[in-house]
């Protein structure tokens, strides 16, 4: 086992462990902070794969914006922020069954995939990577449509949020 494999295991354990804490911890706000640890672990995994851009996007968008929005939501909706409740309800058995089925299904599907044996592609020179990505985003034969649709999607999200907030006011 080489060093990068050890690092991978460490960060995978961090990600899974904190994900487990998100669903088991009793305080809402602690769950939010554990979620941040999970997201951070995923960012670290991206960084290990030398995908610096995705890792930074993960931090900027998820830790910097979405996690903060979660914390805002928790702080704004709960009367008592130390609110704690049972983390299981009556349907936990069904949930566990479906999760197990899903996991099993994915495991069977992935067993037939031959991608695991693939060697990792040699990394592009660091400066080229972002340029390539940017070019791909605005080239009509590549990802131009998704790029512009992303903008429309964001607009829809914003309008929806504003509409909901305006009607609640």
């Amino acid at each position: 086992m080489n060093a990068s494999q050890v690092l991978f295991l460490v960060f995978a354990a961090l990600t899974l462990g904190s994900a487990l804490m998100v669903v088991t911890t009793k305080k809402m706000i602690h769950a939010a902070f554990w979620l941040i640890a999970t997201l951070f672990g995923v960012a670290a995994l991206y960084a290990l794969l030398n995908a610096g851009f995705i890792a930074m996007v993960q931090l900027v968008v998820y830790v910097g914006a979405i996690a903060i929005l979660f914390i805002f939501a928790v702080m704004l909706t709960r009367k008592d922020l130390r609110d704690s409740a049972k983390s299981l309800n009556a349907n936990w058995g069904w949930a566990a069954l479906f999760s197990a089925l899903m996991f099993g299904g994915f495991a069977i599907l992935l067993r037939q995939w031959d991608g695991f044996g693939m060697k990792e592609a040699g990394a592009l020179p660091a400066t080229d990577m972002i340029t390539k990505l940017g070019t791909a985003l605005v080239t009509p034969t590549q990802y131009l449509l998704p790029f512009e649709v992303a903008s429309v999607l964001l607009l829809a999200a914003l309008i929806g949020a504003v509409y909901v907030a305006a009607t609640n006011k």
């Binding site: 941040i36 610096g52 851009f53 930074m56 830790v63 903060i68 702080m75 990577m129």
Partner: peptide, 25 residues
């Protein structure tokens, strides 16, 4: 010399924001 240094600057700032929420809460 990161090729995404400017995003890194923003990401480090978001850790700072988190620390403030932690302290306040």
């Amino acid at each position: 010399d990161l090729n995404v240094a400017m995003l890194y600057l923003v990401a480090a700032g978001s850790i700072g924001t988190l620390s403030v929420i932690m302290a306040g809460w």
